[in-house]
Write a protein that binds this DNA or RNA. Structure first.
Length: 942
RNA sequence: GCCCAGAUGGUGGAAUUGGUAGACACGAGGGACUUAAAAUCCCUUGGCCAGUGAUGGCCGUACGGGUUCGAUUCCCGUUCCGGGCACCA
């Protein structure tokens, strides 16, 4: 009896041995070069893992194992993003503490992950909800509170430096409240009165990336704008560094582009516009507009303010007051969602006029919702000829339109392109105001030149300044939830004050109910023991709150999901350190993440926040690199492949796919786990649900064929494939291979269990290579044949370059070819059979260990040395090349391997087969591409 | 509307970045072994045409052009699908 490939036994055995031997434990080792591989840690949901989840983990595990075989000291940790809304909502529904469900889910995840055979160092596991972890989240928040962003140095500085500056300037107030308010404008973590995305249904505020098209990402509830006092992070201060950093990292172009869009840098000019309250009135004051099209100053025919702008009150004349008030009321009544969808032109005249500093013209000032308060200065100059929104507004209110670009047709729509030659600027010489004897003239310039010239002019004559604006907003950092990190903050006479660093972590208090309080306070309002005793430095019952006794209320907000996930990669470096987030030694050794694997859906959330957070810690000297993730690979989504059965309407009879068009049928999702190769298991179907127990079938060829569709993998579509089941039926090695064989890691693709047999067969063939009929190791001790050596070295070369390029599917194909070749060669050479397990180890570690051990090798195959290929085994003695005439392949012939192109042409043209092609022809050109083709271009002799 | 990425057999996908398109795998068809099934092994498998046959010819990488001896690959235009941003001045 040949020895059977018993994957269950093998995998169980090695899971046990890996744990016992601590095979995957990593320590800092100065003698070896480090390599840091990281997966985006999962949120442990109640549904457990489906086959899509491990895709990225397998991809990174292969790379981690490969790097280790190459001699690197590889850090490959795993942990859990454990705070989150689903656990809290489940708690509200059932009264179960979110910690309980979260921990249960984590255990389930761990169990599933362990089956797949990852090389994670579980000693370094982190959980964001663990006090010894969020200790450092709170600590970082306090550091941000105590820092400001120095515009000149472009980095975070201690807030004390700013206080010193105010003192030196004599602008430091004496009143404590005033001091606090002043510093709030500078702190990197600050309490701000800002417009926030308020979701009444969830009872909390949301960050910009948590809102899509006016509804919450989680749950899809409507979101409205509300002015609230919230903790914010001054992410916008880092805009330029976040943008510049993108050029230094190895991320996909599309995700960098997404971040560039999100940061939204735009270079322009701010220009001061004096205004009057009547067409011929005296100047009352001025406001500032922002434009990226400074070249269009000569085409301004009106100005527009955002309805929320503070200027609205100043410029509204008594005659227009009623109309303006009514308009503001209307704007306020509209939700964010309505404003986003409905772009009808609305607006109202303020009564005032702005004076164009370039032309001296007086143009009406309007108030309209199409101008946003939050961007630029909340005020614009309108150039209807060259901006589509201004154009629509001008048409609606019948305002003049002045074209400024040669040949631009603006009769139907504006000309927005930044290409062309400027005209009408000015229209006549007296239409350009002189400053110090100089007036602006842009006629004849290209638009780009005109922009530069206007900026120069504006700057030279002090009419405004060159300005860069960013769309990136500060992050709202507080949530009205229970299941999150509490803020280490108390309110001393209304002034937010940090709990001393030595008293951290401030642990999440127990509450009776997870809902907001009846008075509308966040859930932490339900906590009884939630007041800060300043003198005794401890948390006490809130009944004791008394300003005179020094007992103050603690912040009721908690931190958002991204708080805990922003610096977790640093914590993995030194997860048990109670003195610091990460020790100097560990941070210096591990530096930053070399390879980060995760979904692209985090492009504008986690991946921005994390970069920001790291830059801040870099400024502090805690993080050693400006960018946290050197290389990023975005794994694609695994979609589900749903199966359908077709029920004839109002019956319990089901028609096979090929015959369904003959009946009036309703397609019904059927569990993919009772369908194989689109053939329905009839008995399993009847047992699936009582409803189908008595079902009848109309079969084709004695089979019931199901229809299929590619959809999102979800319970309701009955298309969820569980990795446990695959591991049970085929083994973890087959699962790992198949997930990678499915296609490029970065690409989204549907899961189809059908193809898995190919990978399973491959492992069985590999296994069979090693054992003779009696079940002994098949070794003849013979020297390997030249063919086998060639197969092996070809494989080493291919697999090495494919892993480096993240092209796992092609390297698995190469394995399949190699194993077929070796088995045909009846290879039983020790040299070759001993090398194969090392090569396959990153992909299929269990079988690799088993085969490695079969040779009596010491220790784990994980500590083997990755083989090098030798060119000498790959050298051919002769090569077959195609000889072409005019680009068509006519015949193949053999050439000596070291023939020069000239010799190849010589040989090809003199070959007997060439004669018929060359007869009566004249050679006009010959091209020889080494190792490919000899091309001879001919034409008939004249 | 703007930006990014993509389109290859019945299916998932290869193609040394300008050099024999369809590797590898699934599915399908045929065969061997077997009482039978499973497992395993072998052959065929992009389309069309000619031939008893070995074989030969033509077409073919979303569509239409271009550059080139030669294009899945480079350039221009079109269509379709996916992703991001979106009254951001």
């Amino acid at each position: 009896m040949a020895k059977e490939y018993n994957f269950r036994e093998i995998e169980q055995k090695w899971h046990k041995l890996w744990t016992e031997r601590q095979t995957y434990k990593v320590t800092e080792d100065e003698n070896r070069e480090k390599f840091y591989v990281l997966n985006m840690f999962p949120y442990p949901s109640g549904a457990g893992l489906h086959v899509g989840h491990p895709l990225g983990y397998i991809a990174s595990d292969i790379y981690a194992r490969y790097k280790r075989l190459q001699g690197f000291n590889v850090l490959n940790p795993m942990g859990y993003d454990a705070y989150g809304l689903p656990a809290e909502q489940y708690a509200i529904k059932t009264g179960q503490h979110p910690e309980k469900t979260t921990f249960a889910n984590i255990d389930r995840y761990r169990e599933q992950l362990d089956k797949i055979g990852f090389s994670f160092d579980w000693d370094r596991e982190v959980r964001t909800c663990a006090p010894d972890y969020y200790h450092w989240t709170q600590w970082a928040f306090q550091k941000m509170f105590n820092s400001y962003f120095d515009e000149e140095l472009q980095k975070a500085q201690p807030i004390e430096k700013l206080i010193d500056r105010f003192k030196a300037e004599g602008t430091w107030p004496t009143d404590e409240k005033a001091q606090s308010d002043l510093l709030m404008n500078y702190r990197i973590a600050f309490l701000g009165e800002t417009m926030v995305n308020w979701c009444p249904k969830l009872g909390t505020v949301l960050a910009n990336d948590e809102v899509v098209e006016g509804v919450s990402v989680r749950g899809g509830y409507p979101v409205e704008q509300k002015k609230m006092r919230q903790w914010c992070l001054r992410v916008s201060a880092y805009s330029q560094r976040l943008l510049d950093g993108l050029d230094t990292i190895d991320w996909s172009e599309s995700i960098k582009e997404t971040q560039r869009n999100w940061i939204g840098r735009s270079e322009g000019a701010e220009i001061e516009i004096p205004y009057t309250l009547s067409i011929n009135g005296e100047t009352e004051g001025s406001f500032t507009i922002f434009t990226t099209r400074a070249d269009t100053m000569f085409g301004v025919t009106f100005f527009v303010l955002a309805p929320e702008s503070e200027l609205v009150n100043k410029v509204t004349t008594p005659e227009q007051r009623a109309a303006v008030d009514e308009y503001i009321k209307y704007v306020k009544s509209r939700t964010e969602r309505e404003r986003m969808i409905d772009h009808t032109v609305t607006g109202v005249f303020s009564g005032a006029y702005g004076i164009n500093p370039i032309t001296g013209d007086r143009c009406p000032i309007f108030i309209a919702e199409y101008v946003l308060a939050g961007y630029g200065t909340g005020a614009i100059m309108a150039v209807p000829a060259h901006d589509s929104r201004d154009y629509a507004f001008a048409k609606h209110f019948d305002l003049p339109i002045i074209p400024l670009v040669e040949g631009a047709d603006i009769s139907e729509e504006s000309y927005d392109a930044k290409e062309g030659i400027v005209v009408n600027s000015p229209i006549s010489e007296d239409k350009s105001v002189k400053y110090d004897g100089e007036s602006l003239c842009l006629n004849g310039l290209t638009i780009k030149e005109a922009i530069a010239e206007t900026k120069r002019f504006v700057k030279a004559h002090n009419l405004g300044r060159v300005k860069v604006n960013y769309r990136l907003r500060d992050a709202i950092f507080s949530r009205q939830r229970y299941w999150g990190e509490p803020f280490p903050v108390y309110y001393k006479n209304g002034i937010p004050t940090m709990i001393p660093e030595e008293c951290l972590p401030i642990e999440l208090p127990q509450v009776e109910k997870f809902l907001p309080t009846e008075t509308g306070e966040p859930p932490l309002g339900n906590a009884q023991i939630w007041a800060w005793d300043e003198k005794n430095r401890k948390i006490v019952d809130k009944k004791l709150i008394d300003e005179k006794a020094g007992i103050y209320p603690i912040e009721l907000y908690t931190m958002p999901g991204f708080a805990g996930s922003s610096a977790y990669y640093l914590r993995y470096m030194d997860p048990h350190n109670n003195e610091a987030l990460v020790s100097e030694k560990a941070a210096s050794y591990w530096q930053n993440v070399d390879l980060y694997v995760g979904g692209s859906e985090h492009a504008t959330g986690h991946l921005i926040y994390s970069r920001f957070w790291n830059k801040f810690l870099f400024d502090l000297g805690v993080s050693k690199k400006e960018e946290p993730f050197k290389k990023l690979v975005n794994q694609g989504m695994i979609q589900g492949r749903s199966n359908f059965v077709y029920r004839i309407k109002e019956t319990n009879t089901f028609v096979s796919f090929g015959l369904k068009d003959k009946y009036d049928v309703t397609p019904i999702h059927v569990d993919v786990n009772i369908v194989k190769n689109d053939i329905l298991d009839l008995e399993a179907f009847k047992a699936w649900s009582p409803e189908y127990e008595t079902a009848d079938f109309v079969l084709e060829d004695g089979k019931y064929v199901c229809g299929w569709a590619i959809e999102k993998m979800s319970k309701s579509m009955y298309n969820v494939v569980n990795p446990d089941m695959i591991v049970e039926n085929y083994g973890a090695d087959t699962l790992r291979l198949y997930e990678m064989f499915l296609g490029p890691v970065e690409q989204s693709k549907p899961w189809d269990t059908n193809g898995i047999d190919g990978c399973f067969r491959f492992l069985k063939k590999l296994w069979a290579l090693y054992w003779d009929k009696e079940g002994n190791l098949a070794l003849t001790g013979e020297e390997p044949s030249a063919d086998s050596l060639k197969t092996l070295h070809k494989l080493i070369k291919k697999v090495t370059s494919d892993i480096e390029a993240f092209s796992y599917n092609t390297s698995i194909s190469a394995f399949m070819v190699a194993v077929n070749e070796l088995s045909q060669q009846k290879c039983s050479s020790r040299t070759i059979l001993q090398t194969l397990p090392v090569l396959i180890a990153p992909f299929a570690p269990h079988i690799a260990e088993e085969l490695w051990e079969a040779f009596g090798s010491e220790g784990s195959v994980c500590d083997a040395k990755w083989p090098q290929y030798e060119e000498k085994y790959l050298v051919e003695t002769s090569i077959k090349l195609g000889v072409q005439f005019n680009g068509k392949v006519r015949f193949d012939m053999l050439f000596p391997v070291d023939a020069t192109p000239e010799q190849m042409i010589e040989l090809a043209t003199s070959a007997p087969e060439a004669a018929k092609h060359l007869e009566g022809m004249q050679i006009i050109k010959t091209i020889a591409i080494p190792k490919r083709i000899v091309n001879i271009v001919v034409k008939p002799k004249a």
